[in-house]
Design a protein around this nucleic acid. Structure first.
Lengths: 216, 216, 216, 216
DNA sequence: CATGAATGAGAATTCATTCAT
DNA sequence: CATGAATGAATTCTCATTCAT
């Protein structure tokens, strides 16, 4: 039992170190972009030696992949938490959009780099870690999908290709954040959120005209 | 006249070389990503010497910026051309989405890299060329904006924040292409296009329910 | 205390490494001239890796500037030391000339390059390091100036533009070394020294004739 | 005879071209230093194609060597011309110093580069052209030597190692120009010249004291 | 475990030289 | 002869990775 506890203590320490390094990585990426982020700078930021990084990560790629993964994971889990408090699908989506934009604003620099320079999915097609990152991305999409599906089930949303709308909504949110990050708009988050939501809910067609036919 | 013709011949040759190098650059980027794209590899791909690249481009940055710019420009101009043939705003948007997805499919590898690894806008905020690239991007958005605005004027589309919907549509298209590029869907382009269009036109709300109030 | 000693040990090591690299640089310059002196060759000569050089010097320029500075500084300080032992201005100058020529003979190759290829002052007028090198040079001139000035004060030397004579003497010594370095003379150092001294002291005019008037 | 005349005409043209290129080289060196002087820039300055340079010079080294040689030759021949007009050795030396400083001032930039960055003798010890340059240098020294020797013969100058004094004087002049080029003095040329001459003629010893003994 | 000096492969860039037109 | 586009060897500098302490 002592041994097990000792092991656990070490594990905790290890986890702690890893977290510290990953956070440092995020800060460095936020400051220098992926291009300018070197192992040296990460070590400096984490206030450890360069070699120590290699005690916790096999190589640079693994380090940065892990950092991005952590970033995405923290983002998605925070979104989920906040959304869980909402009751109806509509409220959930509203909350989801708002939280997404808010979070992005909070960790703006890291997300800005992540979204604008987003080499995280393309890193290398043959890269095994890329698959995991894709999973995280898809899980988030699927989370949105389920909310929308619920809406359809309840009858608030019409029947439609839910997967596609989830994708579209996700990208629209991303685009909105990009707009904000590039300084192309100064609207408050809630306004951006309600614009997005209105668009997603009602589309752009004038209601009096029923222009469904030519589309499908 | 001989001189003028000679000059023109040289200019043509120069343009041709530049085009060749840019095309080679696109192929290299498509194959290796921006990370793995070196001047050496570009030269190899173009079957010229490394130094020759520097006869046509000041430095690596200029080369890659030019390649991306050419990629975007060729994309947007082709989209415009195709869209010009359509008459009504609805047809125009339909055409725009279809052509966007088709073109992306054609030059898939380059666009895949461009969109997934899109460091082109983030390169450096103080970078003068980044501004130009942003202009190209915004011009395309504005092009879409105008189509939508026309629709509003004609009464087909309802009054709404047109800039935001243009952004959202553009990103939704991008997201859709991303889905395709990552192999997450095998739907034919036209189907994807019509799904997007339907979503953009009608939103997801069930028509019988008029859920506008809680949104605004 | 252990820490302080440890720090000192590292500092000593660092100083030692820097010295080693600078010495290697001098040898490479002596062998290949400034033109042919590459960082690669310096690293080879110092038996370290190319990258290691950059741990101690920001860039090539700094490395070579430091090497030249060290060369000049070691030269001038050795001259000063030796001269300090002499008492009268005359003896001091005698010693200065002798030591200058002797030292140059010792580190002949490096000095040969330094003096013949002397791009060290011309490097770049706006270069901040060039200014420091100029300072070293001028300090040496001023040192000679003071000796001569002392002679004037004591009444051994006549009143005259002391700065100019210091410059002239310094250059005459340099010229003398150049003669030796180019193999144009095989006289022993002391003989060269006494010739120079005689010239500097007495000029070339025949004493019976007082030909001062047409000069001034 | 027609053939011979044709040949001569071509030769003249050839000489003319060579002169043009050498002059361009001097201007480029004056502007950019030896480091920054590329064949490209020389060709531009001469308003010819880069390849054309290689029709008249085997390689870069030969070109720059020839340019420096021309510079020295033009300098020494102009000095000789001016000195020839003077009658007595004293007047000759006076003229020589003045003209040397004046010429240097006129072509200041080129000479500044030549003298400060003077890699011309060190270029390469095994270089065959370096020997020729050395010859030019020595011829100039010898020219001065002869003037001084004349003075000795006439009885104006005392018997002494004339070669050494010629060297010393030459270097003192060079040092003086260096002082001027580096902006360390703003004295008019004639004043610098008379200071140098006074020093060279009378030395620094106070005449009342006859301090010859300790020297020899 | 932690360190950080050392390494050296690799990347960008320059420029003397060649050669087809 | 003249050209200047093309070449590629050579050079500077960076940075991921290793390893002796």
């Amino acid at each position: 039992m002592t041994k097990s506890s000792a092991t656990r203590k070490e594990d905790v320490l290890r986890e702690f170190r890893i977290r510290e390094i990953l956070d440092a990585t995020c800060r460095v990426v936020a400051r220098n972009g992926f291009q300018g982020a070197t192992v040296e700078r990460v070590a400096e930021e984490a206030e450890i030696a360069k070699g120590t990084v290699y005690l916790y990560f096999q190589n640079k790629d693994e380090l940065f992949t892990a950092a991005v993964e952590q970033g995405i994971q923290s983002f998605t889990s925070q979104v989920r938490e906040q959304v869980a408090e909402a009751l109806t699908p509509i409220e959930k989506l509203q909350r989801l959009i708002e939280v997404s934009l808010e979070l992005s604003d909070t960790h703006r620099d890291f997300f800005k780099t992540l979204l604008l320079e987003r080499n995280f999915l393309a890193a290398s097609p043959n890269h095994p870690e890329a698959a995991h990152m894709l999973d995280l991305y898809l899980a988030h999409i699927r989370f949105m999908e389920e909310i929308i599906q619920d809406g359809v089930r309840v009858g608030i949303f019409r029947a439609h290709n839910v997967e596609a709308s989830a994708f579209a909504l996700n990208e629209a949110i991303r685009g909105c954040f990009q707009q904000r990050a590039l300084g192309l708009t100064a609207r408050p988050v809630t306004e951006d959120a309600s614009i997005l939501l209105d668009l997603f809910f009602n589309g752009v067609l004038n209601q009096h005209q029923n222009h469904k036919e030519p589309v499908s």
